[in-house]
Design a protein around this nucleic acid. Structure first.
Lengths: 245, 245
DNA sequence: GGTGCCGATTGATGTGGATCAAAACGTCCT
DNA sequence: AGGACGTTTTGATCCACATCAATCGGCACC
């Protein structure tokens, strides 16, 4: 039954992956019935390990499958012709990566593991097939893509109208909410990314991130020590977002 | 046959809307066979007129249908709690609006006509039904959503890493490309939006837009007079994007 | 054909975050 | 344990764009 578990290969074949997965309420199977999830099991049965610093795929690679984060943490980056690049997202367990590739059959971003990670491979042609059969899966998949669009609009808003403090507060609150939804502490967590990566995502320089962290700490909003963050005053952080001069 | 044309109502019932539409190669039917497009005709048969300044839908409205721009020009805006808002996109004929509403059954942006316009209403539940039957429609619809995600990432890049001149050059080149794809001149067109709306979209103030337009004109890159723009040096504008100090 | 108003232009000044620089701190590797 | 390198912090200075302000111009409406 679980013969694969003992072989230390990077791609494993497992049974009943989605049905028994603790992330199923956050991931692709969200809102599906147990019978429907079982259908997904026939589709999503391959996992892949990605070591810290390794890429899952790179911009320009042919697109063949979506990837769900099983464990670990990823970042996605776009690169401009002149070499400038920007982090466009961070991905944690249960989140789907690779939606950008559907439109052109090629990935437009590079996705890199920020710690040793594991992803579930979702072959895209088979997902289309199955969602053609299972209405609720189709519907769920559409919602997922739509939410990605809304998320991106939120980031556009952040980059277009917010000041540095507001951006970082929004970022911390977003992480807090996502960790909380996954059963981790929403007020105490380790950042997996560097100050530079946070800055790139927020359209700021790493020095500004560092200074703003220090300022938040002075104000008693958070405690930071290296990558470890504890949110001391959630309401205070939220207040920063609701207009203040 | 065309009895509806004589009644001056804002919602018209027409036959064969998609099959005979000149925009079909740019719009939802892109890549579908004539027979498949005919199936769409049963779905998309209602048009709606929206006068300049009127909203098609507002953030918070229940989501029931997507809308394809038939004629005219629209903008979408997000509003923050504190009242600050930002333009997240401009929409021209053949483009689909409302994808943001699928995820939550409510619109997250407000979409407003920038000139007297007409849209084709695409009832969403019926689109899901039909794309469940017609594989190529399903596939096409997924690509459309994915491209929207990629487009948004492009704007994030613009807002996160580009300077004012680069942003405006990218904006003009984008408009140029889209007008060109619709059979209009890619080098001479009328802006439908104000300097303030351009600024909001690009994360800049209206004065900066105005100054940068003037600078482009001095450099011989464009000629602007009010809303009328003529691109004099397409390559020069492109060069602005490929790094320059 | 005026008149009023909104949008656009242009100038003067201010400032938030970038840039440059240096030191402190961690961590990984041998 | 020691050394090297990458990350973070903090300070000093600079600059691109914001802000404030005044004028101009076009268009719609009496």
């Amino acid at each position: 039954m679980d013969c694969a578990k003992t072989t230390p290969v990077s791609i494993q074949q497992l049974k009943k992956v989605c049905s028994t997965c603790s992330l199923r309420e956050l991931c692709l199977p969200m809102g599906l019935s147990p019978e429907e999830i079982e259908q997904l099991d026939h589709l999503v049965y391959t996992r892949k390990r990605v070591k810290r610093g390794e890429s899952l795929y790179r911009a320009g690679d042919p697109f063949t499958s979506l990837n769900a984060v099983r464990t670990g943490f990823f970042k996605s980056t776009v690169v401009l012709e002149d070499g400038r690049d920007q982090v466009t997202g961070f991905h944690m367990p249960g989140e789907i990566m690779g939606l950008d590739g559907i439109g052109t059959d090629r990935h437009t971003v590079s996705t890199i593991a920020l710690e040793d990670s594991e992803v579930c491979i979702i072959p895209y042609s088979r997902l289309e097939e199955l969602s053609h059969k299972v209405r609720s899966l189709q519907s769920q998949f559409h919602k997922m893509m739509s939410r990605e669009i809304v998320r991106d609009q939120g980031v556009m808003m952040l980059l277009g109208t917010m000041r540095a403090e507001e951006r970082l507060a929004a970022f911390l609150l977003n992480l807090s909410q996502r960790f909380g939804a996954r059963g981790y502490s929403p007020t105490e967590f380790n950042l997996r990314m560097t100050r530079e990566e946070i800055g790139s995502y927020l359209g700021l320089k790493l020095e500004t991130i560092s200074r703003t962290f220090s300022k938040f700490q002075e104000q008693g909003l958070i405690t930071v020590r290296q990558k470890h963050v504890r949110i001391e005053d959630l309401k205070g952080l939220r207040r920063l977002l609701g207009r203040e001069c």
